[in-house]
């Protein structure tokens, strides 16, 4: 794929990733956020964190299945946008819900499982965002970098659990998120299993040499 196309596609992906927050800002300035605007912002930023996190997790399997290698060039961008929405979401909680009352926040994290799960999900994203540059890959070494970035699986699981636990009764959306995540993680497990089977005969022949 020519470089020019990649650049163009990157612009499109940037625009798409920024559209939810732009829409929120527009709604906020036009009194379109409904009766409970702060709750609306919290919900929307939370949803988009999960959507983008799951999208970033879909890239590797999609690339393997379709053979479209340049998809990988969007993984970091989408992952970082997931973190961006995660930060907005966390800020709405710390600010509009707790008004930066540290004591209350600590108590909440300790006492409420869905807050614990949400904080875990965000905290696990933090090292990934901090080591998202090419320089960090060089610094850590490819293999160690990859191990660190496996934290994304734990983060996504914690994120979906957070969503599941906070919903009052209608679990449709968290169930959908959980199904997609299960699929994305399942594909990896199957792939890992198949890869091991592919490797084994080689290992045997190596022993034979």
């Amino acid at each position: 794929m020519p470089r020019r196309w990649i650049v163009l596609l990157k612009v499109v992906v940037w625009a798409l990733c920024l559209s939810p927050v732009t829409l929120l800002a527009w709604k906020a300035t036009h009194d379109e956020l409904g009766a409970n605007p702060l709750s609306e912002v919290t919900l929307a930023t939370g949803h988009w964190t999960l959507y983008l996190l799951l999208t970033s997790l879909a890239i590797s399997p999609l690339r393997k299945i379709t053979g479209i290698n340049w998809l990988i060039r969007f993984r970091r961008l989408i992952g970082l946008f997931a973190f961006f929405y995660g930060c907005l979401h966390l800020t709405t909680y710390l600010w509009f819900d707790k008004f930066f009352d540290l004591h209350e926040i600590v108590k909440d994290i300790y006492k409420r499982p869905f807050i614990t799960a949400g904080m875990t999900a965000w905290t696990l994203m933090l090292p990934l965002a901090l080591t998202s540059t090419a320089a960090s890959i060089r610094w850590l070494g490819g293999k160690r970098w990859q191990t660190v970035h496996r934290l994304v699986y734990a983060s996504a699981i914690a994120g979906v659990v957070h969503f599941w636990w906070l919903v009052k009764r209608d679990l449709t959306r968290p169930e959908m998120m959980a199904a997609i995540l299960t699929l994305l993680l399942g594909v990896r497990v199957v792939d890992h299993f198949l890869a091991n089977r592919r490797i084994q005969p080689t290992a045997v022949s190596q022993n034979g040499d």
Binding site: L38, D108, R112, P113, F114, W165, L166
Partner: peptide
Amino acid sequence: RWSQATER
């Protein structure tokens, strides 16, 4: 699952 101490 959540506090009832405050309300919006």
